[in-house]
């Protein structure tokens, strides 16, 4: 389905319908966790979630009409940001905890068993608190997540870290349409125009934090790979390597 001309309410419905399920970890390790068991659980979850993320992306209006090259570029660029915003959304009602899966809920202190992990947990928990304070709505969340995917790689050619998109205009149209849907949703809140503008800015400013956390997380995952103590799954490796290649 094409996104051009799609009414904002329909965009919101499609985005909400595309949402992936909350998964189960199943391979529960015994506590207390070690660096190896913790990373084995987290990387296994990330690998499973990546498959659902690809299914989600294919349901975004306009995504499958992009060239395969552009689909790959966007997913490679944004995958950890998309995982992180989903994690924070799942955790919004549980202060101090991160809900990686229905049966994998971790608090900050548990992350200290992995070197360098507590710093990333702290950033994720702080940004989740910001989501909670802003009372982020499901409609706003689905827009932000789609914006993260489309924005992350859209202007990357400026930094020469990845190949340019074949059709950046098509991605920009998708981005504009989803931004319009977000603005439309906020406009129905009954707030003043000034408050609406402020909320749009507050929500979009969160994306800078998500990009920062993703960069930190990518470096951390790469260090885990280099230690060679936790076997990484093929799809996760492929996505991680894409960042190293760039």
């Amino acid at each position: 389905s094409s996104i051009a001309g799609m009414p904002p309410d329909q965009v919101l419905l499609v985005l909400q319908g595309a949402e992936p399920p909350i998964l189960c970890a199943r391979q529960k390790m015994s506590r207390p966790y070690t660096e190896v068991t913790m990373m084995a659980m987290l990387t296994s979850m990330a690998d499973k979630e990546l498959v659902h993320m690809i299914a989600w992306a294919k349901k975004l209006p306009g995504f499958v009409q992009l060239s395969l090259h552009d689909q790959v570029q966007l997913l490679e660029s944004a995958w950890l940001e998309v995982l992180m915003i989903g994690l924070m959304w799942r955790s919004i009602h549980c202060p101090g905890k991160l809900i990686f899966a229905q049966d994998l809920i971790l608090d900050r202190d548990e992350s200290t068993c992995v070197e360098g992990m507590a710093e990333i947990f702290d950033m994720l928990l702080a940004t989740t608190s910001r989501f909670r304070l802003l009372k982020l709505k499901p409609e706003e969340f689905v827009c932000l997540k789609a914006i993260v995917l489309l924005n992350s790689g859209a202007f990357a050619f400026c930094t020469s870290t990845m190949e340019p998109l074949h059709d950046s205009t098509a991605v920009q149209i998708m981005l504009d349409t989803i931004t319009d849907a977000l603005v439309h949703y906020i406009s129905q809140s009954g707030c003043t125009v000034q408050q609406q503008s402020r909320r749009q800015a507050q929500l979009l400013l969160l994306l800078t934090h998500i990009r920062h956390m993703s960069n930190k997380g990518m470096e951390h995952l790469y260090s885990i790979k280099c230690k060679n103590t936790v076997p990484l799954y093929d799809l996760l490796l492929e996505m991680l390597d894409a960042h190293r290649l760039h």
Binding site: K48, V51, H52, I54, A55, L68, V72, L75, E238, M239
Partner: peptide
């Protein structure tokens, strides 16, 4: 290395008409 070779799994999951979840 061609793009296709570099991104084997991602390409397969994106290209196939079957849901990536079912494929995996």
């Amino acid at each position: 290395t061609s793009l296709k070779e570099k991104h084997k799994i991602l390409h397969q999951l994106l290209q196939n008409s079957t849901s990536p979840v079912d494929l995996a």
